[in-house]
Design a protein around this nucleic acid. Structure first.
Lengths: 188, 188
DNA sequence: ACTCATCGTGCACTGAGTGCACGATAGCCC
DNA sequence: GGGCTATCGTGCACTCAGTGCACGATGAGT
């Protein structure tokens, strides 16, 4: 991949999401995007490897946000609690972007699969961060814990009504993270 | 979608997977597949909506297998245990196909995302089956339980060395399902 | 002025996926 | 047997995604 300027990245992203929010993902071609952004087709693919990428690629600013959020977690905090708080903080910070993305995805079922990639970024970071903490957990335990948190989140985000906004999402997250840690729920 | 004959379905599937096992997914075009199967390009797309579909679409025989496996679960069995046993039985039954698929996917990283769809089919069935059982669980509890099981499975399948075969996979599944249900693992 | 890195562009090409109309075969009914 | 119909494979033309490559504009350093 060639080098990329952050301004062009934003320009393409904003043009594309704008069009897709209006017409839906499938009704917008790459040519439409490049026309709206005033760039060439080839430049588009210098920035985004595929049509979906313009929705799902990480914001260049993301690593900075993640560093900030993890730095705020106290040292001795149990991992489960920390993950709970991190996901609240992350969804709060990226709120507007998330809601916009969810609307486009919801309107175009063919995108449902790809949407997982967005979450994966978060959980990959979480995994790396958790592994760097002082803990007695084995690799397998860590993976299971992270993936269970991921499962809790994906469960509630599937039930989330986008119109309730981030507060509605947070209420569901709290409920799920509490349920999973309760001792009796697996005897169902 | 037009009507389809099971023989043609199998013919295309087998030709495609054969080629992909040899050369890798990306190096096989739809034209290669249709040439190998002795059918036309258009017929291919009458059977499979996309190139990946030939790997990931459910075997027409799958519903029968699923019905058989769930019928074998005793009525009062805790859901977690039942899911544990179901996934052992399913991976045992579909073993050869799974190993073959995993090899192709492992050799072509661009397919990693799509591979989730295969698992989704299993867990969708599991969810529907669990909802039909007599249980005091709420919808949210059921979803969380299913998705936690899914997380446990996806954790171990990511760590699975395909060359250890289905027995190796089963050992990992047993370990994970035991760990997750143990009371202390979330205090890490 | 020269050089070099950066980054946008034009073009030609491959391959995925679709809409549509046609054709071959096989069963069925009179 | 002749005509009807459902099934299912096929050929063709087309759109759009994605790539390799060479060129061009700009701007900074010397």
């Amino acid at each position: 991949m060639r080098q990329r300027s952050p301004q062009t990245w934003r320009l393409i992203r904003d043009s594309a999401v704008g069009l897709m929010a209006d017409r839906g993902f499938d009704a917008v071609s790459v040519d439409d995007i490049t026309a709206a952004a005033g760039i060439s087709r080839r430049t588009y693919f210098n920035y985004f490897a595929a049509k979906e990428s313009v929705l799902f690629d990480p914001d260049p600013d993301d690593p900075r946000l993640w560093a900030e959020l993890t730095a705020a977690r106290p040292a001795g905090e149990p991992l489960w609690t920390a993950l709970h708080q991190l996901i609240l903080a992350y969804t709060a910070a990226a709120g507007a972007e998330i809601v916009r993305q969810c609307r486009v995805i919801a309107a175009s079922p063919s995108l449902a699969v790809c949407s997982r990639e967005t979450c994966d970024r978060f959980w990959d970071c979480a995994r790396a961060w958790a592994a760097g903490r002082d803990t007695a957990a084995t690799d397998l335990q860590l993976d299971l814990l992270i993936n269970t948190a991921r499962a809790a989140f994906s469960t509630v985000s599937a039930r989330w009504d986008v119109d309730t906004g981030i507060p509605g999402l947070h209420a569901l997250i709290d409920e799920a993270f509490t349920l999973v840690i309760s001792p009796e729920w697996k005897k169902l």
